[in-house]
Design a protein around this nucleic acid. Structure first.
Lengths: 141, 141
DNA sequence: ATTATTTAAGACTTGAAAGTCTTAAATATA
DNA sequence: TATATTTAAGACTTTCAAGTCTTAAATAAT
């Protein structure tokens, strides 16, 4: 469902928010902590910079940091920045024309569940995730 | 979410059940009617034969037909035959260890919605789809 | 100024899914 | 029996995401 790049992007964003740092965080640090390829993660985070979710700074003490408040960054923003919105708009059976008026055989039921997932991602901000991480132990990053 | 192969498999199965034929239906016919590649569809349906969802017969008047009653074939059977069950078992963020006891940051919410989709696919049999197709116009195949 | 450190950009390689083709095996029919 | 028709199996090619690497640009610290 989510691409590898998207999963990595979400994990990186959670790592960043969890640090609660006003300084820039180097991509190298994030890659090491999350056991990701520095090269691959760099490319992914560049997209988040371009989408305005992160801001970056070059040179020593450079890195990335959130461009907005954690309460204003939704999981959905990250997903759409990396994977686009195909999952939330395209027919589950792949019909170009599938819609409420011209549905495929499972359109209505699928659209209903898909909308719940859309809301889940739209309602889950980095702030909420951060809060959960504070309250619970045993949470994987 | 579903692979191309899986989407094609579902469409083909719906086409077959809709025909209500005791005879074998040639893959060539299905491919033409659904505007799919004969080669690609052949490979996909071979998997469904191996999984026991279809039975096939070679030679003139050969083809494929359902190996079970429409009420005993679930959408989930088709999906698992082609794509496996990764979507329903793997962590949305890609953690190997993610589980109820060792959750990732969004495990519980995701697992809840995912289970609904699992049930949707498990409850939707070819018979139910066939019934809907009879009742409604404008249903895309 | 020079050097080290960091992201930016884009070229390049790899791997897996998608898609095509060829040959073999089964079988109905003439 | 010979032929045409159909699926089976697997080799082959294409496409695109995943992943790697190199060079450039920015900037802090010495």
């Amino acid at each position: 469902m989510l691409s590898m790049a998207c999963k990595d992007a979400i994990r990186a964003m959670i790592y960043i928010v969890k640090k609660k740092s006003d300084d820039f965080i180097s991509i190298n640090e994030i890659a090491k902590e999350l056991d990701l390829s520095f090269y691959f993660l760099s490319k992914i985070l560049q997209k988040l910079v371009k989408q305005g979710l992160l801001e970056s700074y070059r040179g020593p003490k450079g890195g990335v940091r959130l461009a907005k408040k954690p309460k204003d960054i939704k999981l959905l923003d990250i997903i759409e920045a990396i994977d686009g919105n195909a999952f939330f708009t395209e027919c589950v059976l792949g019909f170009k024309e599938c819609s409420d008026s011209e549905p495929c055989a499972i359109h209505s039921k699928w659209a209903k569940e898909r909308e719940k997932i859309h809301k889940l991602f739209a309602n889950t901000t980095l702030q909420k995730i951060e809060k959960e991480l504070e309250n619970k132990l045993n949470i994987k990053l």
